[in-house]
Design a protein around this nucleic acid. Structure first.
Lengths: 218, 218
DNA sequence: ACGCAAACTTGCGTGCACGCACTTTTCCTG
DNA sequence: CAGGAAAAGTGCGTGCACGCAAGTTTGCGT
């Protein structure tokens, strides 16, 4: 179960993936993301440029994945670790906050680079959707497979909420276009720490998580 | 409010947009989506190819937007219409089901084409995210601006749920890769009508919608 | 009414995503 | 243990997304 049935072939795939990730991030940090061509990344990883995009659909995806790659699995694992006593909502919330505040052992320049350049920022936000599949698995386990859809919907909602938190966190000033008619309220708190933002966006989903959990064993 | 401050210039923009949409869809239906180049679409709409992608980031986006363009606004409007008596969860659910079962006055071949070709299918699914912004507005209104995040999170969750429903609906047979370890349950209902699917995925979110609404006026 | 400034459009050039056909590597089965 | 098939890597070609730097239209101020 921990090791999928795949044998020795899968490792080289993951190794190549890792090599591409690392090369992409390293080159991007060294010379700036716009001065890195796909050819360079492929060469640094020891593969053909054609092979590169059998793994990644865009340059930004490759760079960002070096930072977000394992977070997907880590979030799910962090949820799984929580004892059965705590509510699903608390487990998910704490796990998310825990994993997104952990800086990891990455080059601090990397995160700075990503949050600065718009293209990378967008790719980073899109990557948050990647936590949904593993989250679906652990949530489904806690729910004892009560309705296949439920776990997927809740996981996707959590991912969407996290994305919103990151969007807000990464904005120095408000962008008018997204809010449109919403800005009428006027009273918005543009700043705030990331953990606070994460808890704020996950709070509205807590009732749904609790309700789903309650439905399994009354 | 209904008319943004923009004057007469904005109309030509929308007209061009509409022309590109219509041209893209018509040509795609006529000769198949792979036999349509951007140059053809631009020519049919009477603009330069360069102008085309000031409006759309990809060919698929242009084609799909001809079908999904007004749905975004319609869903939100359908929610706004519901009387204040019905719960937010019911309002949203009914509105979504109503708008996604309404075929619209489109060429039936168009929807068939979109659901068939993979690239178009993906673009169609991505387009569901577009309902979130207008939904945010109407939900925020019902919530009397109780927490700016709440409406955004709920709207995004609804959009994500709708996407899941459509994903499942558009699959002839199960794709093994997405489910991964989830297929262990074995008992899945692969088919089912679209309205049923929509209600199924929105049900888990109802507690969150109700809780948010309840928080405004106890 | 006139002209200026902002915006939309356009042509050009570059790098890239991706399909197709082929070679090489890896794994499974008789 | 060998043969063969599936899968990964590679080369090549085509159309496209997007930056840049004009040209052109729209709308506003005086």
């Amino acid at each position: 179960m921990t090791t999928p049935p795949s044998g020795l072939r899968e490792r080289k795939k993951q190794a190549t993936r890792e090599a591409l990730r690392e090369a992409a991030l390293r080159l991007a940090v060294e010379r700036g993301p716009d001065q890195v061509r796909v050819e360079d990344i492929a060469e640094a990883a020891g593969v053909s440029p054609r092979t590169y995009n059998n793994y990644f659909a865009s340059r930004e995806q490759a760079i960002v994945s070096a930072v977000t790659a394992d977070r997907e699995a880590r979030v799910a694992a962090a949820v799984a670790v929580r004892p059965a006593g705590v509510s699903l909502a608390d487990a998910v919330t704490d796990a998310v906050v825990e994993q997104y505040t952990a800086t990891g052992e990455h080059d601090p320049r990397a995160l700075l680079l990503i949050t600065t350049r718009t293209a990378l920022r967008d790719a980073y936000l899109d990557a948050t959707a990647g936590i949904a599949p593993p989250l679906t698995a652990v949530i489904a386990e806690r729910l004892h497979d009560t309705g296949e859809h439920t776990a997927r919907v809740l996981a996707a909602s959590v991912a969407a909420a996290v994305r919103i938190a990151l969007e807000g966190w990464l904005q120095p000033a408000g962008n008018a276009e997204a809010a449109e008619g919403l800005a009428a309220g006027g009273l918005v708190v543009p700043s705030g720490s990331l953990p606070d933002r994460l808890r704020a966006v996950l709070a509205p989903l807590a009732p749904a998580l609790d309700a789903a959990e309650r439905r399994t064993r009354p």
